[in-house]
């Protein structure tokens, strides 16, 4: 049986793992390669490495880090941050990344998605969507969630799927860092609307939140950062809980 995936997200800055509350205050949580290896051993199903300063400082994600991770870690991992064109994708995939995640650059130039999917296949193209609800309407935000756009989240999600995205990483800016649970409603909407997997992100605080996002939220995977980094929820305990609650997970 295909299982629901648990994905720790390692936000990386200057080669170190960090996690901010609402993306602003940053705290240090260690070496990204060692942390990734530890998560793989603990039973994480995938990893996501996001170079959170990449777009702002126009810095490319470090290929070196990807190479080190690929040599060490024996589960799939996605790399995001500052990826804008086919050459960026090629460099990261060649270094050993399984998937790349594209966010602001896809909004700026949606046709880049068509090119990437044609060149490398949809299975390795993840589109990250940062969404925020403004007066009852969900809008896409870019640049680490700081910059609003006029794109409505559901419409944008459908467009990126049509252009060849293989997966959507949906982060609710309203929920991120607050630990009150995932944005189950919009996650479920996208999961029903699209035929590609949806990774829910933002808001995990308790184990129950994961159960909710897999049931009410219909997510295929759930991503979190600080609760894993600071051992608030150990992955083995989370999986044991989910299994007991009748959700298919890899043990």
């Amino acid at each position: 049986m295909l299982t629901k995936r648990i994905i720790p997200c390692l936000d990386v800055k200057d080669g170190r793992t960090v996690k901010g509350v609402n993306f602003v205050e940053l705290r240090d949580a260690g070496d990204p390669v060692e942390l990734g290896r530890l998560y793989a051993q603990e039973g994480a199903d995938e990893l996501v490495y996001l170079d959170i300063t990449a777009t702002v400082e126009k810095r490319k994600t470090l290929v070196d880090l990807v190479t080190r991770v690929a040599k060490t870690v024996n589960i799939p991992f996605t790399v995001g941050g500052g990826i804008s064109n086919v050459d960026d994708v090629k460099a990261l995939l060649n270094a050993g990344a399984d998937k790349i995640s594209i966010n602001s650059a896809a909004v700026k130039n949606p046709r880049a998605l068509d090119e990437m999917a044609r060149e490398f296949g949809s299975q390795c193209i993840v589109v990250a969507i940062d969404t925020r609800n403004i007066d009852g309407i969900d809008f896409v935000h870019t640049h680490g969630g700081r910059k609003p756009t006029l794109l409505q989240t559901r419409e944008w999600a459908r467009e990126v799927a049509d252009r060849g995205a293989g997966e959507i990483l949906l982060t609710s800016m309203d929920h991120d860092g607050v630990k009150n649970g995932f944005a189950n409603e919009i996650t479920a909407d996208l999961s029903a609307l699209l035929t590609i997997p949806i990774i829910a992100s933002g808001g995990a605080g308790k184990m129950q939140h994961f159960k909710e996002v897999f049931t009410a939220g219909k997510a295929d995977a759930a991503l979190a950062a600080s609760i894993f980094h600071f051992k608030e929820i150990p992955i083995p305990a989370l999986k044991q809980y989910l299994e007991k609650e009748g959700i298919a997970v890899r043990r």
Partner: peptide, 11 residues
């Protein structure tokens, strides 16, 4: 396309 395709994840 009864379920999501690709078949992606752990089975």
């Amino acid at each position: 396309s009864i379920e999501k395709v690709p078949h992606m994840g752990w089975n």
